[in-house]
Nucleic acid binder design. Structure first.
Length: 266
DNA sequence: AATTATGTTGCTAT
DNA sequence: CATAGCAACATAAT
């Protein structure tokens, strides 16, 4: 279930594993991941770069780009026996796209087609990147365009800001002291500037704890006993003031928030 | 058994 | 057009 920092971590790993090598073989085990036959075009091509846009991973080969989206549970891992949806043989190693819920998607496209607004989901329409440099308040303000939607809902819109998901949105709003139900278009430049800094800081802090061979997701098996690394997400008590954390449903997702630190009920 | 889960898309209604 | 709500995709855990 990666958001921007986890996909960035995956980018670094895949760059280290694939970069500079030619694809030897790709075996597609699950045609719901990628159209049948699409991988044949990649065989023998060298991986020139591995890039990230929002939550999309872009494996740039000589003629085509392999685009990956992990959705809720996808990852690329060195082959270890888990059921794989796709196996890539490259640089003398075998790497699997594993994905418990099998919601992830992949595409093979010509480089030019990445800019086509209809080819790879929302990729060509993504908003600006909020990390590693915080967005300017004015940029976020322009992206919000005076919308009347709640700020939490707007932050989840990949066309507003790229890469922010449910946890980062909640954590950022908590750090910025903003009510998640606030009308996005009503926020001041000062509030938006604080929010931009918070989003960047949350991304940085999540990335900082991703070390080792594999992305660690909060709900992964074996992580059940690990302490919750977040300040408000899945908390019972506010880590700042101790008040009871409340939850509400916005855009079908659970928002955790502190009514004391985040502007009170509305 | 029902609910929930770091995501996106598409449909329907207002 | 803007917005909200919900189902769908698929699986596992509580």
């Amino acid at each position: 279930m990666p958001e921007l920092p986890e996909v960035e971590f995956a980018r670094r790993q895949v760059a280290a594993w694939f970069g500079g090598h030619r694809v030897d073989e790709i075996v597609l085990h699950d045609e719901r991941l990628l159209a049948h036959g699409a991988t044949a075009r990649l065989i023998g091509q060298r991986v020139n770069a591995v890039e990230r846009r929002g939550k999309f991973l872009l494996v740039r080969l000589e003629e085509h780009t392999l685009v990956l989206h992990f959705k809720m549970t996808g990852k690329v891992v060195p082959q270890d026996g888990r059921r794989a949806r796709m196996t890539v043989s490259i640089g003398g190693g075998l790497y699997d796209f594993v994905d418990t819920r099998r919601l992830g998607k992949a595409w093979v496209v010509e480089h030019d087609a990445l800019d086509d607004a209809t080819v790879v989901g929302v990729l060509a329409r993504l908003g600006p990147e909020p990390w590693p440099v915080p967005l300017e308040a004015g940029v976020l303000h322009a992206q919000l365009g005076g919308t009347r939607r709640a700020i939490k809902v707007a932050l989840l819109d990949q066309e507003v800001v790229a890469g922010v998901g449910n946890i980062i949105a909640a954590e950022s709003l908590w750090r910025a002291g903003l009510n998640p139900a606030s009308r996005a278009g009503d926020l001041t430049q000062a509030q938006l500037g604080t929010l931009c800094d918070a989003i960047c800081a949350v991304c940085e802090s999540v990335l900082a704890v991703e070390v080792g061979e594999e992305i660690a997701y909060l709900n992964d098996p074996g992580r059940g006993e690990a302490p919750n690394p977040f300040f408000v997400y899945q908390r019972d008590a506010c880590t700042s003031c101790g008040a009871a954390i409340e939850r509400l449903t916005q855009a079908g997702r659970t928002t955790y928030w502190c009514p004391t630190c985040q502007g009170g009920r509305r």
